[in-house]
């Protein structure tokens, strides 16, 4: 679409401050949520969306307090059910930029079903899932993403549950945009949030988030200073999968099995090129399921284009109006068949 710059109404540019409300933020000091909040407050002014068109919808949990800390329209709903409220908001008013804020418990345990269906329907909604692998608000019980053996007050001898991989879950639901970022890298968070916003369709972003009180340093083995270069694989579309100090290592495929190779000695074309838009979900699933000896993929893992749910709903309405005209009182009340008693 060509925009006539002359005719664009002058909208005062928004700044981060426009999104900071007067109320006090009440997360624990040192919580990873602060960095996510600040990154989103930095992202929103850059999206070209009028402030009144943002709606932030959350469920219950530490992360779900988020709407109160953003000076936009916000709805703090009930545990696990934010996806359904967000669906209603978006279909009712597709002009809104709708953001669902959820956590590993809210989104994947009590609300797993709603999240599944939100993802598969492909509404143009952005879902930020704060994954701290613990229940924070209820004071430290294991969550559906806690590793086997996690010791908590409800699993004093260690959790026996197989943890859920949020990215794999989203890919399984065939979400059209799936990404991952970390709470200690504001620049990467802003980039990822912007990409999520730009994507027309459902955008699912898993954020590795630290719970300083109940699960401190849970992601340290991945994103700690000592480990991050070897343990994180920053993805860029069209670029080879390289990681490690000075990008010295790469990932290639041996059959359907990924292998780590020395980037310097790899043959040309041997190292996999990142293709988030590959039509088959297999490549993204392979990235999401690489074992512990591999680095964790960060950034946009999958991004494909499909029509959004709300646009299909609107198109059906338009088609019906085109065929039948706008409904009248007579049509509503009389229906197909009447009789008259004189």
């Amino acid at each position: 679409m060509v925009t006539d710059i002359q005719n664009v109404p002058a909208v005062p540019a928004l700044t981060r401050k426009d999104f900071v409300p007067t109320c006090e933020v009440r997360w624990c000091p040192g919580c990873g949520d602060y960095a996510i909040l600040s990154s989103l407050q930095r992202t929103f002014p850059e999206l070209g969306v009028p402030r009144e068109n943002f709606a932030i919808i959350s469920g219950i949990g530490c992360s779900s307090r988020f709407p109160f800390y953003m000076d936009t329209y916000g709805f703090h709903t009930i545990h696990g059910r934010a996806p359904s409220v967000a669906t209603g908001v978006k279909v009712a008013n597709p002009d809104l930029s709708v953001w669902v804020i959820t956590g590993d418990g809210d989104g994947l345990s009590i609300g797993g079903n709603h999240l599944l269906h939100l993802l598969r329907r492909n509404l143009n909604i952005n879902v930020l899932l704060f994954n701290n692998r613990i229940y924070g608000l209820t004071k430290g019980q294991y969550s559906p993403t806690s590793p086997v053996g996690t010791k908590t007050k409800t699993s004093p001898t260690g959790s026996v549950e197989n943890p859920l991989n949020p990215v794999l879950f989203a890919l399984g639901a065939e979400a059209t945009f799936v990404a991952r970022t970390v709470d200690n890298n504001p620049k990467h968070m802003v980039e990822t949030f912007k990409a999520a916003h730009e994507h027309q369709g459902i955008s699912f972003v898993e954020i590795f988030q630290n719970c300083v009180i109940f699960n401190d340093s849970t992601w340290e083995s991945i994103y700690g200073k000592e480990n991050r270069e070897d343990q994180m694989l920053f993805l860029e579309a069209g670029k080879p999968l390289l990681f490690g100090k000075d990008k010295s290592k790469g990932i290639r495929l041996n059959g359907l099995t990924p292998e780590i190779v020395d980037a310097a000695t790899a043959a040309p074309g041997e190292i996999l090129i990142h293709q988030p838009d590959h039509p088959s979900p297999l490549y993204s699933q392979l990235l999401a399921t690489m074992g512990p000896e591999f680095p964790t993929p960060m950034g946009v893992i999958r991004k494909i284009e499909k029509p959004t749910y709300e646009s299909l709903v609107a198109a059906q309405t338009d088609a019906t109006v085109a065929k039948k005209g706008t409904g009248t009182w007579q049509e509503l009340l009389q229906g197909d068949s009447t009789w008259t008693v004189a």
Binding site: S84, G88, A92
Partner: peptide, 18 residues
Amino acid sequence: VEDEIAAIGVAIGGSYAG
């Protein structure tokens, strides 16, 4: 929608949006 809970949640979302 996917279940009874979602049904009222979606309706509430619609009401919230006017």
